[in-house]
Amino acid sequence: MGALSRLGLPCLTAEAVAFLDGHGIYTVEDFLAYDLYRLGDGELQKQVIAGLLQHVAATTNCTWTDGATLFERLTTSTTLVSTGCPSIDDVIGGGLRPGTITELVGTSASGKTQLCLQAAAAAALELRASVAFIDTSNSFSAHRLAQIVTGLHGKDKFVEHKQELRNVARRVLCFKAFDIYTALRLLDDLLVHMDGAESKRGGDGNQGDFFQKLQLLILDSASAIISPVLGGAHTQGHALMVSLSGLLRQIALKHNIAVLVTNHTVSGEGGRPKPALGESWKSVPSVRLALAREDESDCCTATVTKHTIGACGESVPYVLSRDGLRAFEAEEPGATQQLEWRQE
């Protein structure tokens, strides 16, 4: 909320503004911080105080609800967004939860981007939802996305439904942002568009439609844009990081969207990898999934290292296959079938 004179409230006549100026009150914040008894209790003062307080109450607009309503909403209208890999869904409690931020942290080549692409594919295919993919490191590959969609869809059905792939690909929108300022602007614009799509149901053409169906926002990777500004003698980088996390949270909560971010690793004590965005970022995601790849091996493991409502420490092995991330179960007959299928 900016200067009082720009609010355009009926109670703020020229006389009232001049009066407030006399008390050193120029902004809404000045007004709230001021001892209102010192303003006096004339007719003008009463009107101004009542009018402004009403305005503040109306714009901040915080309403309460109760546990029963929340629970009902959870059971009836919350759709978990699958990552496309059932075993990983299981360890994080069924899938990516709308309204929360899930983080993937892992070494290079551990499959972070692959899991992001797979979640995008699964949401667009199975939920027919729109997906916003913010790519900060040139790693979005539509070709790979199409491969994963084919893998999820199953080959037989797919031949008949080539149109389906086009529809799925249309639902995934990719944005590029190579520095934090661009990313912040982008998220801010997305938020404005989402607010817009919410207010005018029916929407304006394709764009409105996209934002109404948006269920998943992916930021791959968050650390690539934050780490160049973080650290050193200045604290501005930290402020930027907090802004980014604030915006992500706002988008998640306000529009009930599942947010998936990735974080890379740096070497920590004794050469062991640790997350690049460390302690101060740790409070941002509700769920943190650590991906790790054993040396010289195709088998990777995903471990839950933070979960606000579920159990931590559970881990699941997976492999990166042509069709995307798959549970590592070499002995099962199903898996061998899949292998043969791939060789065709």
Binding site: L145, A169, L173, R185, L186, D189, L190, H193
Partner: peptide, 14 residues
């Protein structure tokens, strides 16, 4: 034109 200007759908990128 805001955020939407640089966006491409996966289909276009494909």
């Amino acid at each position: 034109n805001g955020a939407m200007a640089g966006a491409k759908s996966a289909l276009q990128i494909l």
